[in-house]
């Protein structure tokens, strides 16, 4: 079984047609579906938030069978994630893609759980604390993309469960929970 770091690749990763964009509609639909699952699984396990289409991305290259995805294929697979709300293009040129293995509202729920588990209701945290503090170590929130975190907090703010404020001492922003 092949692995990428600590990520276990499925058997069909060595199937050469998996790396060629299939022209026949039904076959392609199946292929796109398999790629979407694989991209989400991989990004989740490796905590990858951004895929640059013009940079080498380990998942898109299989050196064992000497195959790699064409630019067109990458764009097709990521676009299909975007259309499902599981990814977002970060620029008009489709050069960078933000992968949301959890949707923004799911991230917000995740933060609420975290707050409750740590008894931080009505507490205050900096964004940096949430990303790399002791409390978040080992949770899904560890290493969360700052942009994604801010959007999840804004989502909570709209529901009246959090308030973002500018920190006075540092440049860092803080958040006050009111769950």
């Amino acid at each position: 079984m092949q692995t990428l770091g600590n990520f276990k690749l499925p058997q069909f990763f060595n199937y050469p047609p998996y790396f060629t964009l299939q022209p026949v509609r039904e076959t392609r639909e199946k292929q796109v579906q398999l790629w979407k699952e694989l991209i989400l699984d991989y990004c989740k396990s490796q905590k990858v938030f951004i895929i640059g289409l013009e940079e080498d991305f380990p998942l898109f290259i299989n050196s064992a069978i000497e195959r790699s995805l064409s630019h067109e294929a990458k764009e097709v697979f990521l676009s299909s994630l975007v259309s499902e709300g599981r990814a977002e293009w970060m620029d008009k040129g489709h050069k960078k893609c933000l992968i949301l293995w959890l949707r923004i509202q799911d991230w917000a729920d995740c933060i609420l759980n975290f707050v409750r588990e740590n008894g931080l209701e009505n507490g205050v945290m900096t964004l940096e604390d949430i990303r790399s503090g002791i409390e978040s170590r080992g949770t899904e929130l560890e290493g969360i993309d700052r942009g994604v975190l801010v959007r999840a907090l804004r989502h909570l703010e709209q529901k009246g469960k959090a308030a973002i404020f500018k920190g006075s001492a540092t440049d860092d922003e803080g958040v006050k929970f009111s769950a």
């Binding site: 276990k8 499925p10 058997q11 069909f12 199937y15 050469p16 047609p17 299939q22 076959t27 199946k30 292929q31 579906q33 398999l34 699952e37 694989l38 699984d41």
Partner: peptide
């Protein structure tokens, strides 16, 4: 050309 395996793979359990 390869035999079409895509139909054989269960997308909910790719392993």
């Amino acid at each position: 050309f390869y035999v079409n395996l895509f139909e054989e793979i269960d997308p909910t359990n790719t392993h």
